[in-house]
């Protein structure tokens, strides 16, 4: 079937099998390999992207379900001139990653969460990350990164 999805602001139309998962559409049809496949069972959150602005696990969404809708991946976060998104910048400054495998999913989950809750407590950040697993950091610096990003945004706005 033909599926058209606006990915990071660009309309992408591809002929795919009906059973194609959104994560494979993004990685293989669109070539956006920043979105990782981790557990492939809706558990780890490595494949998290924004669907119409809300975080979803793209291993458990059919490309057909996203047809005609808007998807943002990690590639869509930085400005075209390379300036990092405030959340990415905060991960950089707070050392919010080690191996980096979970990071795209963490950043996208954080982007969705901070839209819903722009001024969270540390406990709220930890709860918001319940769907994202990290096997390196013990989460501490990831939580600090998201808190720092929220603070930076406040200063901007």
């Amino acid at each position: 079937m033909q599926v058209t999805i606006t990915v990071n602001g660009t309309s992408e139309t591809h002929e795919v099998e009906t059973r194609t998962l959104l994560v494979h559409y993004l990685r293989e049809a669109c070539g956006h390999t920043g979105t990782n496949v981790g557990c492939d069972t809706t558990s780890c959150g490595a494949c998290t992207v924004l669907l119409d602005g809300e975080s979803v696990k793209s291993c458990t969404v059919l490309a057909a379900q996203a047809d005609g809708r808007d998807v943002t991946t990690i590639e869509g976060m930085a400005s075209p001139d390379g300036t990092l998104h405030p959340i990415q910048q905060a991960f950089h400054e707070e050392h919010g990653l080690q191996c980096g495998y979970c990071t795209p999913g963490m950043v996208m989950a954080a982007a969705s969460f901070l839209k819903e809750n722009p001024d969270p407590t540390e406990a709220e950040v930890r709860e918001a990350l319940e769907g994202n697993l990290c096997r390196c950091t013990g989460y501490h610096n990831i939580v600090q990164s998201i808190l720092a990003a929220a603070k930076n945004r406040e200063l901007v706005s």
Binding site: T42, L51, S55, V56, K57, T60, A109, S112, F113, G131
Partner: peptide, 9 residues
């Protein structure tokens, strides 16, 4: 139920 991503879908 689940986590935020699951609750969005």
């Amino acid at each position: 139920v689940g986590d935020p991503q699951v609750r969005h879908r």
